[in-house]
Design a protein around this nucleic acid. Structure first.
Lengths: 203, 203
DNA sequence: TACGCTACCACACATCTGTGTGGTTGTCAA
DNA sequence: TTGACAACCACACAGATGTGTGGTAGCGTA
């Protein structure tokens, strides 16, 4: 009847402590025990330890003994979002407690990519709308000087203009191909500056 | 002739130290001075301090005095991507050093949203293709039980099926409206489980 | 040559920090 | 009533931690 991996509830105070820790991690550093005590109004470090033990036992965090500030969140960590595939029957609260399917925001970047090889570009205009890329979208680009036909690339045109287009090839010559039947292909000279790896759109 | 905000180069060793710090921050915690010394093979904490001072003076990091592990990266920070609007003339390396325009991955989430109110959903099918939402896209949803006409919502249909559609209204009755002229509106009963806040597509 | 800078070292020291020990009070279920 | 647990407190202590002081050596520039 008892399962270890069941979703254990937190008391109001435990949640308050957890939220403070989350905030601190988000803003910069995990707090020290005494910082937590001070924030929560506790007079003793022992009290904080009791809370950390409780949160740890309930699977919300992990600590690497002895190391200062070594609080690691396990559930609802910063930069992680539960990924739901299907919503189980009769569960009004969704299945989001599921620790397995967490979408890491870092996953958006190509794995192992050097920070210096990535940049973001605001999409202007509707020339790629048939590829599902809309005006205002943010395009994450990995820098590279070459690309393959069919790739969506960021290209630099003559006058400092950057544009996102399919890389096309016709009679051995590369050109820029929009994904919008109202737009014409661009045969002007251009430089490949990178390849599209991610599209982000905020509503 | 000398500008403070110019991009100052790093020596090879300084870059090595910076990379180690970045790694540590990425994996969990910023390192202590002694952890850096150990990793770099330095025999003295003073040496590390010299490096931190140098990196700090060059604008790569900031420290909050006296606090343990309080190293904060300013350039090329984890989870931040340079956002480029236009690419300056004659600059083959792009303008990515620009500290002002950094896209924080955390920005993808609705500001101040509680972690528990967010989840992600894989988009299946092409019913929203005219809204630029393609098969395989990841939809970030903020949980809410109600929405306004015209919002794109995640709705729960009878049999545990979740679907992403426009919320429509006809003769006072809500219905689900696809963004694809080949699809029919859905008039079956449904429950609003959340509102679309972000679309992410990986290539 | 003097100066600034990088690149190190040794060591002392005041705090910071996590942990250990031993309590108290109250609630709730068995 | 016994036991488990939440929710606190006090205090001591070893070791971690950032900082301060004072060096040495090499290199390139003015």
């Amino acid at each position: 009847m008892s399962q270890d991996n069941k979703v254990t509830g937190l008391t109001a105070k435990q949640e308050k402590v957890l939220n403070f820790i989350r905030e601190r991690i988000q803003s910069n550093l995990p707090p020290t025990i005494r910082e937590i005590a001070k924030e929560m109004g506790f007079g003793s470090t022992g009290t904080v330890r009791d809370y950390l033990d409780a949160l740890s036992k309930k699977g919300y965090l992990r600590r690497t003994g002895k190391l200062s500030r070594s609080i690691e969140l396990l559930k609802g960590a910063v930069n992680s979002i539960p990924l739901v595939a299907t919503i189980p029957a009769g569960k009004p609260n969704l299945a989001y407690e599921d620790t397995e399917n967490q979408l890491q925001l870092g996953d958006l970047l190509p794995a192992g990519a050097n920070q210096n090889e990535i940049f973001a570009l605001k999409v202007k205009g509707e020339s790629m709308i048939e590829a599902g890329i809309m005006d205002g979208d943010t395009a994450i680009i990995r820098k590279q000087a070459t690309a393959e036909t069919g790739d969506i690339i960021a290209a630099l045109l003559g006058n400092n203009e950057v544009t996102l287009k399919y890389l096309g090839r016709e009679n051995g010559k590369f050109f820029l191909k929009p994904a919008n039947s109202n737009y014409q292909p661009i045969y002007k000279p251009f430089t490949v500056i990178g390849k599209l790896v991610t599209i982000i759109r905020k509503y």
